[in-house]
Design a protein around this nucleic acid. Structure first.
Lengths: 335, 335
DNA sequence: CTGAAAGCGCTTACAG
DNA sequence: CTGAAAGCGCTTACAG
């Protein structure tokens, strides 16, 4: 439509050089207050906006963070994936970064391309599993990267996740405190374990450990895949282990469906069965009041992920960071 | 790490000019087969990738699509939002575009900035409601834009959505065919209607229309907001209208919870209550087999959205497009 | 069929 | 405190 205004237009209108305008833009203190003020006014008058491509070419920085979706996520995609992306890009914006979603199946290839073409300054790897090839790719490229997940090795990359070990231990202490001697861990599906997702592995391993330490009889139930009916699976688990007095649910779809599934079968929570569930506090509409729960906070995680990546971009040589956010156990609210 | 290779390096190594390399890159037929072949080989050898910023500066095209999240989505965010973004960016990639997520609360401001700084070639507006300010903003900017949603007016913008009117009519014909004289429409929450979201309005209006045409007694139930317990709301609706023999559920969280909620109350589907639900075929883990349902396909929608936007970018003067995808009604599978 | 050159809109040493 | 100028890595008329 109307002609696009460039830095030259501003310079001319303000009666200064392009360099001066550029310095004003970057708040360089060498420019006098009056000049800066004058330039800023003409910028507003003309409605100037910096050309992103030109700046990127000149500075060799794109000011874009690449959000890399998991390779081969298969059919399973958390309902909170969208919220994650939303929040990440929100916090990125607050730090002056745009965010680009990199989602094709050939995750690593897409990463190489995005990096080689200077499209991004850094990567956020979503839902990283053990030995995730995206980590080695990031390493080879040598680009600032933060891993969202808890792989056994992060290959020298910064890491952010919920502290599943600590949360698991806390769940078990709660079980002991409430005098439960035999419990069920309703865990993630076998296909999640097969993918070696850290959140599933780390949580389960700590539960096993704590069960031993506390002398609690533990049964682990893990559905075969994520397509089966979680309500039926939950009841099946109860049927298999009739002496269990409590259950820990660490599984998204099961957490959502569980209150209904139990009430449908006339199981009173917490009288017939004491239940602890782990789910994001953003899971609102699902009614879980009679459960105790570990309330992970996606918002805090997103904020931490972005700040970690931004810090890494600013100082590539800073020591590696491993941030585990430890969310507390909430007791059920009676209603 | 290792020095980044530019078009000059390729030109030198291949013994041609930069211009020639550039022409090879764009498959210009003026370059001889042999030269092109030679250049392509050195490109591979050197591992050259075009610098995105340089190209964008030169061509004034960013090759990026901006996905604009709804302004003030409030607490409600569909569980499929993430899948949507994922699929959109997948199809964008297939068409040679990257996708940038634009999500801040000041949606329109963010749009202006993204456009002014030449960061995007076009916009996809997610979940557009009637009189959505993003539409007028897109118009003022004069940038290729496709509206995902069914607003009353699209302000001259291309539009893609599921065909809610047609689907609603089909649901009602099914009701009539099954001889239901009195039914309940369990609809979206009042806050969704207050936002004037087209999918809720258009569907409801057609249901009302069809009810009149077919002589069916219709009760519309709409929860106050999206935080309330959908299971309780569903039962409340049944309680209010005890003579209804069927229900149409057009509400995401209610669709998910409904099978459990009904079974918990001993309501047999379809014997006690005939139910038609509308939900994406990507909603897998939730068990809905005893419902009839309109199976919208997020994948097809995403594909259509991207192809529409790409076409618009290529030909800004082509006639305006309005694509309504009409998904069929599936009868329940007995199991 | 190929190349020299201008230009895209910025930033940043370097002079003054 | 400010400006002239080079350079970032491409593309694209324009010559030849």
């Amino acid at each position: 439509m109307d002609k696009v205004v460039t830095i030259s237009d501003v310079a001319q209108a303000a009666g200064v050089s392009k360099a001066t305008v550029s310095y004003v833009l970057s708040n360089d203190k060498r420019i006098s207050k009056q000049t800066a003020e004058k330039v800023r006014r003409t910028i507003d008058d003309l409605g100037y906006t910096v050309n992103h491509a030109a700046r990127a070419l000149s500075t060799k920085k794109s000011n874009v963070l690449g959000i890399v979706s998991p390779t081969h996520h298969g059919v399973y995609l958390s309902s909170f994936f969208g919220l994650h992306i939303y929040l990440l890009s929100e916090y990125a914006a607050q730090s002056g970064y745009d965010s680009m979603f990199i989602g094709s199946d050939d995750g690593c290839d897409a990463m190489r391309k995005a990096s080689a073409s200077h499209k991004v300054d850094g990567f956020i790897l979503m839902d990283v599993c053990d030995n995730d090839s995206r980590m080695t790719t990031a390493n080879e490229i040598g680009i600032p990267t933060v891993v969202f997940g808890s792989p056994t090795s992060s290959f020298g990359l910064d890491t952010v996740d919920s502290d599943f070990r600590s949360e698991a231990a806390r769940c078990m202490q709660c079980m002991a405190a409430n005098n439960h001697k035999e419990i069920i861990l309703y865990s993630w599906s076998k296909s999640i374990f097969k993918k070696r997702m850290g959140f599933a592995l780390r949580f389960r391993d700590q539960i096993i450990q704590s069960a031993e330490d506390l002398g609690i009889v533990l049964h682990i139930y893990s559905p075969d895949n994520d397509e089966s009916d979680p309500a039926g699976e939950l009841l099946h688990a109860l049927h298999l282990y009739p002496h269990a007095t409590a259950m820990i649910i660490h599984n998204e779809s099961a957490s959502i469906i569980a209150p209904q599934a139990f009430s449908a079968s006339g199981i009173q929570i917490p009288d017939d069965l004491y239940v602890i569930s782990v789910f994001p506090k953003q899971m609102q509409w699902s009614v879980l009041a009679s459960f105790a729960f570990v309330q992970t906070d996606i918002d805090q995680l997103a904020q931490k992920i972005v700040s970690t990546l931004v810090a890494r971009i600013q100082d590539p040589d800073a020591p590696i960071t491993r941030s585990l956010l430890d969310f507390t156990l909430q007791q059920p609210v009676s209603r």
